[in-house]
Amino acid sequence: MRDFYGVTLENPLMLGTAQYPSPAVLEAVFRASGAAVATVSLRRESGQGQGFWQIIKGLGVPVLPNTAGCHSAREAITTAHMAREVFETNWIKLEVIGHADTLQPDPFGLLEATEILAADGFEVFPYTTEDQVLAARLLDAGAKVLMPWGAPIGSGLGLNNRYGLRTLRAAFPDVPMVIDAGLGLPSHAADALEMGFDAVLLNTAVAQAGDPVGMARAFALAVQAGTLARDADPMAPRDMAQPSTPVIGKAWL
């Protein structure tokens, strides 16, 4: 598997820590999923932050802080600096949001922030679209990982633009890429890995399931299946039927 800024993940699954019914469920979900990275955020201290930090440390996986909710490069850059100090990591899941309804990345702010943060020693995971031109610019700006969306955050729609994602994957075969956002079902995760993406990042699909722990287990199996399938070199699809049973030797009846 490709590595993420020098870190090889045991499992191609990154999991968010938000929206669980309780801290106990959060811990159980991480155990059941085998998630190799935990995403976290920074918010105004309201008395819960210190306890949450202890829970996160107990998960025993690398932490990927985000800049969720930031709508400008400046906001995201300040948040990234604060996250680096609090979480003691150079990793940053860089979100610069451009639209309130779709939570689509603002490509211009994202590029600006990526350039500044990468020059400042951050290891940037830019939350981006499947736009190939933007991807090239982000890589030029110093990103060594890309996180294209599957669909809008929290929508559960899966891989919304398979053509665009396939093209992006083919255009940058050596760049580690994580499908981030929009996955709703384990089949979406398997799909992403079968297409050659290196990992998936999800949160709502597990946290908002009726049985989060059961769904975490389902995603664990899906990413395993997707990885095995990709490594096994899938057949090429074709439009017409082709008999699988030999034609030669068929009886003349």
Binding site: Q19, S41, G49, F52, N66
Partner: peptide, 10 residues
Amino acid sequence: LEVLAPMQGG
């Protein structure tokens, strides 16, 4: 002044 702490995130 903003004082931020670790919080749940996706």
